[in-house]
Amino acid sequence: MNLQEYINSLFVKEDSILEAVIESIDANGMRNISVSPEIGNILTLLVKTSGAKQILEIGALGGYSGICLARGLPKEGHLTSLELEREYADLAHENLEKAGFGDQVTYYTGEALKSLEQLKKEQKRFDFIFIDADKGNYPNYLEYSLQLANPGALIVGDNVLQRGRVFDVSHVDSRTESIRAFNQRMASDPNVESMMLPIGDGLLVGRVKE
């Protein structure tokens, strides 16, 4: 048993709702790149402990992470989710409805940067922002997240280790460089308190100072 298997044996329980989401993703011919079960558990825990009521999710896919985020919300809370593909957003909404959160989620479809600009124009503000979309735009997503975040908000980025490529100097591709830039900004921004968790493919959690 390795470290990941040990962690999962203790903290990852059978979950028919999330298993059905994975099945629906496969059935629709979509890439199964949802967050891992342990990351899903962490997201729920972070939302609950932060007391977040307004969540922004950048990257919906089939709704796996959306359900994990929504599970941490109070009944009056709301999830705003951005997804490039309308087909994916429709599936995600269907899965959140089955999980009992259909009335607590709104989807914006199309390019995330355009949706983020729209949210900025609408003067929306969020208590929790989860970034799990195209890695090349992570630095851009972070810039918008900082503008859309309430004081004390959490900004969380997934896949920040890129299977070790971020700390392997031999990797100089654009995707890896974008994640390095994201990590560096989160680590050095004077207005953000942050730490990277080496679980899954790496989770970076930052709190916007009040």
Rank of each mutant, 00 (worst) to 15 (best):
G100Q: 07
Y64A: 05
E87P: 09
S16M: 12
R185I: 11
S34Y: 11
L46P: 01
G110P: 02
T49K: 10
V21S: 02
R175T: 13
V21A: 01
G157L: 02
V169L: 15
N183A: 04
N137M: 01
M1E: 14
F126T: 15
M196C: 08
I33V: 14
I67W: 03
A60T: 11
F167R: 13
G59D: 03
L154Y: 05
V35D: 01
E210S: 13
F182I: 00
K53Q: 13
R71N: 04
L56D: 05
N28M: 02
E38C: 00
K48M: 09
L79N: 03
Y6H: 09
R180H: 12
E143R: 04
I129S: 07
E97P: 01
L10Q: 12
T49N: 13
P74H: 06
D90S: 13
Y144R: 06
E76W: 05
L84G: 10
L119V: 10
R86A: 14
R31G: 11
F182H: 11
L146N: 05
S170E: 14
V156K: 00
Q118L: 08
E14Q: 14
Y138R: 03
A89T: 03
T80E: 09
V172P: 08
M186C: 03
N137Q: 07
I25V: 09
E5K: 08
T176I: 00
E19I: 05
H93D: 15
I39C: 00
A52C: 06
E83A: 05
L96I: 07
R180P: 04
H93C: 12
P139C: 02
K114R: 13
Y107Q: 10
L84E: 15
L119G: 07
D103W: 13
K120A: 11
E57A: 01
R125A: 15
G29I: 07
N2M: 10
L142F: 09
S178E: 05
K48T: 13
M30W: 02
L204K: 11
S34P: 01
G202F: 04
